[in-house]
Amino acid sequence: MHELAIIEDMFRIILKIADENRLERIDRVTMEIGEYRQIDPSVFRFAFEAAREGTIASDARLDIEFQTVEMRCEECGNSFSIENFIFKCPRCRSGDLHIIKGMDIFIKSIEGE
């Protein structure tokens, strides 16, 4: 359900960017979402459709690109993607890891005119 709060903040940003760029209509928003954030795409879409109503994005399309979680092992320096949420280095089995990718929720692009 944190999808709702995230959509709210996302709309604050896209409407501001549209305003700064003098867009009268937003046609498409592309998001890059890290899998660490456990965003359910159908809940996210539902919240997007509710939030866009009555705004200049009311007909906008939403594209989501998911980004896998990547970690670096502090023990052996190995970089790898997380599978099945097992946070262990596949090379040395260490659990001393550092996240390097897949934890952010980016607005990648906004299209409109």
């Binding site: 995230i6 903040d9 996302m10 940003i13 960017i17 607005i107």
Partner: peptide
């Protein structure tokens, strides 16, 4: 790219 989580962070 704008990170939506920045505001809370």
């Amino acid at each position: 790219m704008k990170n939506v989580l920045d505001r809370n962070r």
